[in-house]
Design a protein around this nucleic acid. Sequence first.
DNA 1: GTGGCAGTACTCGGATAACCTTTGTCCGAGTCTAAACGG
DNA 2: CCGTTTAGACTCGGACAAAGGTTATCCGAGTACTGCCAC
Lengths: 169, 169
Amino acid sequence: MRISEAVEWSLHCCTVLAVLPGDQVLPSSRLAEFHGVPPAYLAKALQALTNAGITESRPGPLGGYRLAQPAGAVSLLDVVLAVEGEDRAFRCSEIRRRGPAAATDPTVYRRPCGIARAMWRAEEAWRAELASSTIADLVNELVATVPPSQLHAGAEWIQSVHATRMNRT
Amino acid sequence: MRISEAVEWSLHCCTVLAVLPGDQVLPSSRLAEFHGVPPAYLAKALQALTNAGITESRPGPLGGYRLAQPAGAVSLLDVVLAVEGEDRAFRCSEIRRRGPAAATDPTVYRRPCGIARAMWRAEEAWRAELASSTIADLVNELVATVPPSQLHAGAEWIQSVHATRMNRT
DNA sequence: GTGGCAGTACTCGGATAACCTTTGTCCGAGTCTAAACGG
DNA sequence: CCGTTTAGACTCGGACAAAGGTTATCCGAGTACTGCCAC
């Protein structure tokens, strides 16, 4: 069991997009540069976020991505499901119906077996925990713990990207 | 993100092993037959359970597997970790240290970033839920919900296997 | 000087290959049974 | 008749291949700016 790297990248990207001033957007290539990850693959993850309605995209020069919703309205679960898919991690293959002790009466199997229910219960706990945090919480946590000089460096970088994109002669 | 099929098979096998009478053991080939799964691959999962101390194995004729602990002492989490490995699903690759806005002072990164902490918090909730159920709970749930005729059929099958193994002329 | 127009550069979006984990399989080491043999 | 030996068959255990999914990449469609041209 392993969560995709794209989830981690997506969450980091969302925190960056959340602090963009005004209606500014940021292209995927810059987001990749900021995080030091392969640009083409990050684009795939951002595409998934856009399909899920978490981010918006604008094509063309001065195009890029920005959050489609307030940072407080986007939970970590939203991002994880957008990138990893909505399917549950545990899949019941109904092996109880196979083998020599299987029942012929299908009504016996109307309810999911106890194993699947227990696994899904755990997964619900996981989802509930992820649903209780938002991108805004991540940003607030950053602001509270990261040294101001560090935050300033990030803001400077964002501003420089914006300036470069505007001052294209 | 996807949980291995071997986890499902292992849990089902544990419930069967939990209801074995006396010191009886059951070979992996019979467990595979009972559940209708590939014998060789199931053996791999049972091997992992044995390495984790959840099951015991006896080689030779009349050999097989049985639980090494009371069913009430084995949690679902124990089984999942034995088969899937102890590693966490979310792995932080510390991408915050890369890129143009990275800090030169390493002490800034002493604590895990908020994203990793949130993901791990969710994973802890998942583990806590799995740790709260035991194999014995699964068995009790089966006894309470499965029709008696069905339970009887399973017990008959186990007994027939035992008899066949003893009456080898 | 001003409006229109074509060219250009940059962006997203989906379709296309390599790597790795999971799945599936096999054969060898060890062990217990059971029969055969000798006393 | 009984103890010992030997052969056999069955089990687990770890090493060895195929399949699916994640990772990584590329090229095409679309858009906004820039400079040029005609009026």
